[in-house]
Amino acid sequence: MTPSLPLLAVAALVTGLLGAPGREVPPVGDVVEHVAGHASGLYWTPQRMARAVPIGLLAPSTLPSIARAALPQAAGGILAPGLPARPAGPARIRQAAAMPPATTSGTRWASGGSVTRTTGRVFLTLNGVDFSCSASAVRSANRDVVVTAGHCVKDGAGDWAENWTFVPGYDQGRQPYGAFPARRMFVAGPWSRSGNDDYDVGMVAVDDLDGRHLTDLVDGQPIAFDPPRGRRTYGFGFPADPPYDGERLLYCAGVPHGDPQRQTRDQGLRCDLTAGASGGPWLSGFDPASGRGTLTSVSSFKYSNDHRTMYGPYFGPAVRDLYRTAERA
């Protein structure tokens, strides 16, 4: 973990024009904001969406660029011959997917309910490469907030995403509620400065669609901070690496545990979902009948020596600050 660098706020004042599209603006507290440039509505054609690469990469400390996810995949991660091993332990991989099972490491969600509307796919461009992730609409004051992983918004200390678009309720190419482009993006300072996995959370305020706000159309899951650890959790997403294709909503469910490597404050959930599930919501207090729960984490990474456990960051004060900033955007 790299210590925080408080000079970031000063650097943003010097290097960015406040509020200018495509430029970073000063953080509020320890929140770093980016005003998204508006991509053409014609950019995300069905063909481009089908070709988007699911984000699945080693942690930024071992791989300098998220664009390496476009390299050949192996076991849900990427081939990176010649790169040094992570000195603190195993490398991490970004991956994160009758009544449905209450414990499963990966099952198609076929029970309907609110989660099928609030969960969706994200399509974005980083370093010239088109990627896909997962995300969730949440209840907010502005009715426009989407929560995903930080690495689905900004490449750690690197570039911000472009052409960022959320498709709620995505199902086998169908977009029943339309596509919502980003207008403002937010990550925590420790993620923006060093790709600190404890803060791998991104929040995006999206444009309305023909005058209607996102949660007016699809509703939103409630969000909670400082939740009790070890509560039964359902994790959802659109994994797109084999054996999955990103076309259907899948889920995992179980009781999460602490990080046995002690490299993060994250919790781990038994989960076989693959790349593309990154950013998918973790819902506690989940009711399978209604498809409603409380958002308490998102899918973040897997360790290279344990591909069956997905880790998600703990929603503490830094994530609360992110949310309060995003819902005022």
Rank of each mutant, 00 (worst) to 15 (best):
K302C: 08
H307W: 09
P27S: 06
L249A: 02
S284V: 14
N127G: 15
A52C: 13
A52P: 10
N196Y: 04
S304Q: 13
G316P: 12
G158Y: 06
E247L: 14
G112P: 12
P46C: 03
C252R: 00
G169F: 09
A329R: 11
S192N: 11
D198A: 13
T148Q: 14
L250E: 14
D198S: 11
R248K: 12
G22Y: 05
Y43L: 05
E24L: 11
D207I: 03
G220W: 05
Q47T: 14
G316M: 03
R292K: 13
M49R: 15
P90Y: 12
A179C: 09
T45H: 11
A67R: 11
F180S: 05
P260N: 09
K154F: 04
V10Q: 11
P72D: 11
T264Y: 00
D306K: 06
L217T: 13
R92H: 08
E33N: 05
F225L: 04
L58C: 12
R270D: 12
S134Q: 08
G220Q: 07
D259Q: 01
V167R: 02
A326E: 04
R86E: 14
A224Q: 08
A110W: 05
P281K: 06
V147Q: 02
W109G: 01
R68G: 09
R86N: 14
A50S: 13
L322S: 06
F123S: 07
C271K: 00
D226G: 07
Q95T: 12
L124F: 15
D306M: 03
S40F: 03
R232Q: 07
I93F: 07
A80G: 10
P227C: 06
V201Q: 00
Q73L: 06
A67D: 13
W109S: 00
A98W: 08
A98H: 10
R94K: 13
R184Y: 07
S278Q: 06
A11K: 15
R328P: 10
A80W: 05
I78T: 15
D198Q: 10
A157T: 12
H307I: 10
D287G: 01
P81E: 02
A97P: 06
A137N: 07
W282S: 00
G156L: 03
L42V: 11
L126A: 05
A9V: 10
G150W: 00
G56T: 09
G120E: 01
C152G: 06
